[in-house]
Design a protein around this nucleic acid. Structure first.
Length: 558
RNA sequence: GGCCCCAUCGUCUAGCCAGGUCCAGGACACCAGGUUUUCAUCCUGGUAACGCGGGUUCAAAUCCCGCUGGGGUCACCA
C-alpha cells in the first residue's frame, strides 16, 4: 500500500539579510520537489536569533521569492500577492518567535522524561574549555561531567529562575542518515555531545525549533544545503526523543565562486570596501569634496560606513560588485526564468534528451514543477559560472516576444534606470525590441545598445577612424551619398523602421551602390560609431528631426 | 587537527548503481569558417577531461583499497 500522505516540503530562511543565491536554489528545488509530487510548499521564518533578525529582511526575502516565481502554499502572506501564504491546515504561525510555547512544551516534556536536562555552566567556562580543546587539536565536545547531580535538583534550580540552558541527552548509539542524494551517512556516538536545545534567553536553538516545526507542520521531505548534513543526526536524535517521524532528507551540494571561494555576502562587503578604498578617480564626483581631497574622503568613508551603504557608494562610483543576492541579479537585468533555469541546472540534471539527442538544459518552471527529482542531483560541489548564466539569460531574452521583452525592459528600467525609462516609453521599447533582444545578455545591456539615443544631437562624439573609413575615404563618396540620402529622407512621412529600411535600400539601388556603402556613412553620422542596431530602428528611435540634425552636424564638420 | 561529504573537458555536466556498444556525449567559454548593410543573432567545424597509485577482471571512467586534492562541520548562529 502506498502512503497516501501528501508530500510537504519547506523553505526556512532566517531573516538576516537578502535572499542569497544559494538560498534561492534551495527554495526553488524544495518548491519543485513539492510540486512534482503533488504536495505543498511551506515557507517558515526562522527568527529565533533576536539580535540578527529584522522585519525588512523578511519582507525582502518574500519579495525576492515572489519575483523568482517561487510561490508558497502556506506561510506568511505578502501584500499585493494574495495567492501567496496562508494557513490552510492550521499549522501556523510561521514565525518561530511566535511559537515559543510550542517549543517550551516539548522541551518540558523532554526534561520530564529525562531526555534533556538544564545545565548551568557559564558561557565563559565553556569558552575556556573550547579554547583548550582547540589548543590540543581535538574537536570540542561538551563534557557531561555534572550529570550526576540529580535531575530533580536541576529542575528545582531551573524552576527557581536560575540562568540555565537546556541540553539534549544524546544517545550512545550510532545514527544513520538515509540521504536521498548522498546515500547512508553514519555518525558514531563518540562524535556526539549533549548540545543545547534552549538558550539562556529562553529561545530554542535552531535544532530544536526546526525539528518541532517540521514535525508539527507535517514536513515529509527536507532538502537543504550540505552544510547541514552534520546537524542531521542531532535532529534525528531529537525526533526519536520526542517520538516524531523522521522526514526524508536530501543534502544538496554547495555552490562556490569560480575561484573556489565561498559565495558569501561577506565577500561582497569585503570587495566593496576594498574597491571603494582603492578607487582612483581623477575628478571628484561629489560637489562638496575637491578633486585633491577625494582619495582621502573615500578612505574615510570606508572606515565609517556600514557595508550596505558602502555597496551603495560602490554603485554610485560605478564599481561593479559580484552578484550574490537574488536582488543583485534582478538589478543586473536577469530574467527570473533564466536564473531559475541556471540555478536548477547547477547540481541537477533532468536526464532528458532533446530531439537531436543532446542533453536538455533549457526548461521553464512548469517543467521543473513536473519533473524535478533528487535522483538527478550530483553530489559534488559546483562553481557558479556567471558567463553561462549570462548566456542562458541572453537566450531567454531572445526567446521573449517583442511585447514581453518591452514590458520586462520597461519595468526593469523604471526600477533601476530612471533616465532610460524617461527617454523611452513602452511603445518605443516595443519598436526597439527586435533590434535590442539579440544584442543584450541582460536587460541592463539594453542601455548600451541604444546609448546613441541617450545623447543630445549636438553632443555626439564621432569616432575618428569610423568617420574616415565611412565618409572621407575614397573621395568623400560616403559623404556624398549621405547628403543625398538626407534630402531623400525629408519627404518620408512614416518614420518607422520598415519604411526607413525600404528607403535606404531603394536609395542605394538608385545610386547603384551596395547597401553597405550607404548604411555605414549613415550609421556613423547619426550614432558617431561604426556599430549600431539595424538602421531602421536606429533612425526611427531618433526621429526624423534628430536624424537630420545629426547628419547636418556631421557633414558640416567635414 | 577529529569527524563527515565529494572528485569526468577551463566551467556545468551525461555515462558509473546493473564493467565491454566510451580512443568518453552535451552545454557555456574559446578558436576557425559561413550567412548578414555594421554589430549582434544564426549555421558549420575544431581544441579540450576520466586526479594519482595499487588491486579485482578476459575487459574498469564504471567495482575495491590507499594517496592526493576540494568542501563541510566542530556556537547559548541558522
Amino acid at each position: 500500500m502506498t502512503d497516501p500522505k501528501t508530500t510537504i516540503t519547506r523553505f526556512a530562511p532566517s531573516p538576516t539579510g537578502h535572499l542569497h543565491i544559494g538560498g534561492a536554489r534551495t527554495a526553488l528545488l524544495c518548491w519543485a520537489y513539492a510540486k512534482a509530487n503533488g504536495g505543498k510548499f511551506v515557507l517558515r521564518i526562522e527568527d529565533t536569533d533576536q539580535t540578527r533578525s529584522s522585519e525588512s529582511s523578511m519582507r525582502g526575502i518574500l519579495e525576492d521569492m515572489a519575483w523568482l516565481g517561487i510561490d508558497w502554499d502556506e506561510g506568511p502572506t505578502l501584500d499585493g500577492h494574495p495567492q501567496l501564504g496562508g494557513d490552510q491546515r492550521n499549522v501556523g504561525p510561521f514565525f518561530q518567535a511566535q511559537r515559543l510555547d510550542l517549543y517550551n512544551t516539548h522541551i518540558r516534556q523532554l526534561i520530564e522524561e529525562g531526555k534533556a536536562y538544564p545545565a548551568f555552566e557559564s558561557p565563559e567556562e565553556l569558552d575556556a574549555a573550547r579554547k583548550e580543546a582547540i589548543a590540543s587539536k581535538t574537536g570540542y565536545k561538551y563534557n557531561r561531567a555534572g550529570l550526576d547531580v540529580s535531575i530533580e535538583d536541576r529542575i528545582a534550580r531551573m524552576d527557581a529562575g536560575e540562568a540555565h540552558v537546556v541540553r539534549l541527552k544524546m544517545p550512545d548509539e550510532a545514527i544513520t542518515v538515509h540521504d536521498e542524494i548522498l546515500g547512508d551517512v553514519t555518525v558514531e556516538p563518540t562524535e556526539f555531545d549533549d548540545f543545547i536545545i534552549r538558550k539562556r534567553d529562553g529561545f530554542p536553538t535552531y535544532h530544536l525549533a526546526v525539528v518541532v516545526d517540521d514535525a508539527l507542520m507535517g514536513v515529509t521531505h527536507v532538502l537543504r544545503g550540505q552544510e547541514h548534513l552534520i546537524n542531521t543526526p542531532r535532529h534525528i536524535a531529537i525526533q526519536q526523543a520526542l517520538g516524531f517521524d523522521t522526514p526524508s532528507y536530501g543534502h544538496m551540494p554547495l555552490i562556490f565562486n569560480p575561484d573556489g571561494s565561498k559565495m558569501s555576502k561577506r565577500d561582497k562587503d569585503k570587495l566593496a570596501k576594498k574597491s571603494v578604498k582603492d578607487q582612483k578617480v581623477e575628478s571628484s564626483p561629489i560637489d562638496s569634496v575637491s578633486d585633491a581631497d577625494f582619495g582621502a574622503w573615500l578612505k574615510d568613508k570606508t572606515r565609517q560606513l556600514p557595508s550596505d551603504q558602502l555597496i551603495e557608494l560602490a554603485a554610485f562610483l560605478d564599481i561593479s560588485l559580484p552578484e550574490i543576492d537574488v536582488e543583485d541579479f534582478q538589478r543586473a537585468g536577469y530574467l527570473p526564468g533564466a536564473l531559475n533555469n541556471y540555478l536548477a541546472l547547477l547540481g541537477w540534471n533532468p536526464k532528458t534528451k532533446n530531439e537531436d539527442g543532446t542533453d536538455l538544459e533549457h526548461f521553464d518552471m512548469d517543467y521543473l514543477a513536473s519533473h524535478y527529482t533528487t535522483a538527478g542531483m550530483s553530489k559534488g560541489q559546483s562553481k557558479f559560472d556567471r558567463v553561462k548564466l549570462m548566456s542562458f539569460n541572453g537566450d531567454a531574452i531572445a526567446a521573449l516576444t517583442d511585447e514581453d521583452f518591452a514590458k520586462s525592459w520597461y519595468a526593469w528600467a523604471s526600477k533601476y534606470d530612471q533616465p532610460l525609462a524617461e527617454r523611452f516609453d513602452l511603445d518605443s521599447m516595443l519598436m526597439l525590441a527586435p533590434a535590442v533582444k539579440t544584442r543584450c545578455k541582460t536587460l541592463a545591456d539594453g542601455r548600451s545598445v541604444v546609448g546613441f539615443a541617450l545623447i543630445a544631437d549636438d553632443e555626439i562624439e564621432y569616432d575618428g577612424k569610423a568617420v574616415h573609413k565611412a565618409l572621407i575615404k575614397g573621395d568623400k563618396k560616403g559623404l556624398e551619398l549621405l547628403i543625398g540620402f538626407r534630402n531623400a529622407i525629408e519627404s518620408l512621412t512614416d518614420f518607422s523602421p520598415a519604411p526607413i529600411e525600404a528607403l535606404v535600400k531603394e536609395y542605394a539601388e538608385s545610386q547603384e551602390v551596395g547597401m553597405g556603402k550607404l548604411a555605414q556613412p549613415l550609421r556613423v553620422a547619426v550614432t558617431g560609431a561604426a556599430v549600431s542596431p539595424p538602421l531602421g530602428q536606429t533612425l526611427a528611435i531618433l526621429g526624423k528631426a534628430s536624424v537630420i540634425a545629426r547628419i547636418d552636424r556631421c557633414a558640416e564638420g567635414l
